[in-house]
Design a protein around this nucleic acid. Structure first.
Lengths: 218, 218
DNA sequence: CTGGCTCATTGTGTATACAACTTAAGTCAA
DNA sequence: TTGACTTAAGTTGTATACACAATGAGCCAG
């Protein structure tokens, strides 16, 4: 779902994606084709194409005979997402460390300085934004469209938990140090270290999110 | 496309997949919906669903307004596939090394002994089979359905090149040593080493295939 | 001979009608 | 009261007809 000419199908895709990611449509909610057709002015055939694309991208699940519903995640699946992110983003961090593209490293350097110089009261809001930009910048410059596609799906699925997860300030502090270390390693062209740190960072984030879901565990 | 009750849609999916993987349908070939409908006794709506699933799984490409054709791979994309396999299968090798499931390690041990004891004249035919079983066994027991889904897509895409690639006996010899080393590391519960060896093995295989496509390169 | 235009053919994109299935409510009997 | 059975409403699965876009052949002009 990217290079369509017809605007309505894209509109429908983006609108539903937005509704899911903003929590308007909750995990488990059923989507009724007929209602969506009325809502977006499409007939059922193209509407179902949109729904299939949303399923492919990890946001919906199709139950044969019952239709589509918003994907639900259990703890096991959340851990699987983070393991997969370790594999995909770890590899991406390794790959970008060996680039010959000064502009890429300049942006990493800027992001690092920006994050370093954040005041305590800016950290909670701006910290995660810079982190997201870092992750996105790394995967975008790994020059591997397959890994990027995997990342997109994983990020979509991860967004299904964000509505529940309100990450605490302490977690964000930890993420800051990890992000700084990752960017430092990339700037040093140390691919092995960058990959190792990226994976530790994601494993740590996974643990933190797990704690929020199941505070008594571990 | 897995747990459908209706047989015809599954039949169509499997038949087209088989035709592609056996070279009956070559990369770049166009698929005409109407013909496929006649061939499988389906109407266009469910037929298109099948085609979308095949696209999702990496075997077809949809050109808006032109229809579906069998995916074509250039050298860049082949390298991307192997980088992604490094990430996915490397992580899987790491994960299985920390399992507490004796039956899994027993199978690995059996596969290793089977491969070790192959005579020279059996190696060309049986060697790749054992290798494929090893890769499949590892990803299946990593307990991560997301990684397994990624692997399925990568293997589908990789199969698009196999018709062209007739791997030489020497390459298979090298693969044998790599496979043996990987299985040894897993049996020793050495996850870091297993992952490292898996990645080296895939990087090597990628180089070998690249040489077949572009003998003058490198 | 070549370049561009027209028009017919072919195939996909969409809309809609009908069939089959799932679900849930309501009824009757134990 | 509870259990199973019947039945009806609603939703998805499928088939088909029509609209539109792309392609290629043939023709004409330069």
């Amino acid at each position: 779902m990217s290079q369509e000419k017809n605007p309505t199908k894209n509109d429908a895709y983006n609108a539903i994606q937005k509704q899911i990611q903003e929590g308007e449509l909750a995990p488990g909610d059923w989507l009724v084709e007929r209602d969506l057709c009325d809502q977006f002015g499409l007939s059922r055939t193209p509407m179902r194409e949109v729904l299939w694309h949303l399923e492919k991208d990890g946001l919906l699940i199709q139950s044969p005979g019952r239709g589509f519903r918003v994907r639900e995640l259990n703890l096991q699946e959340i851990m699987e997402i983070f393991q997969a992110r370790e594999a995909v983003e770890g590899m991406a961090a390794f790959l970008v460390s060996h680039l010959h593209d000064q502009a890429f490293f300049d942006v990493i350097s800027e992001l690092r300085k920006e994050l370093e110089s954040l005041k305590d009261d800016e950290l909670q809001e701006t910290g995660p934004q810079i982190g997201a930009r870092m992750h996105s910048h790394i995967i975008s410059h790994a020059n591997n469209s397959i890994l990027k596609g995997f990342y997109t799906k994983l990020k979509n699925m991860y967004s299904l938990t964000v509505n529940i997860t309100r990450r605490s300030r302490e977690i964000e502090m930890v993420s800051r140090d990890s992000h700084l270390a990752i960017m430092k390693a990339i700037e040093d062209r140390n691919g092995e270290l960058a990959e190792k740190l990226m994976r530790e960072h994601l494993r740590e984030t996974c643990r933190d999110i797990t704690k929020i879901f199941y505070p008594n565990l571990i």
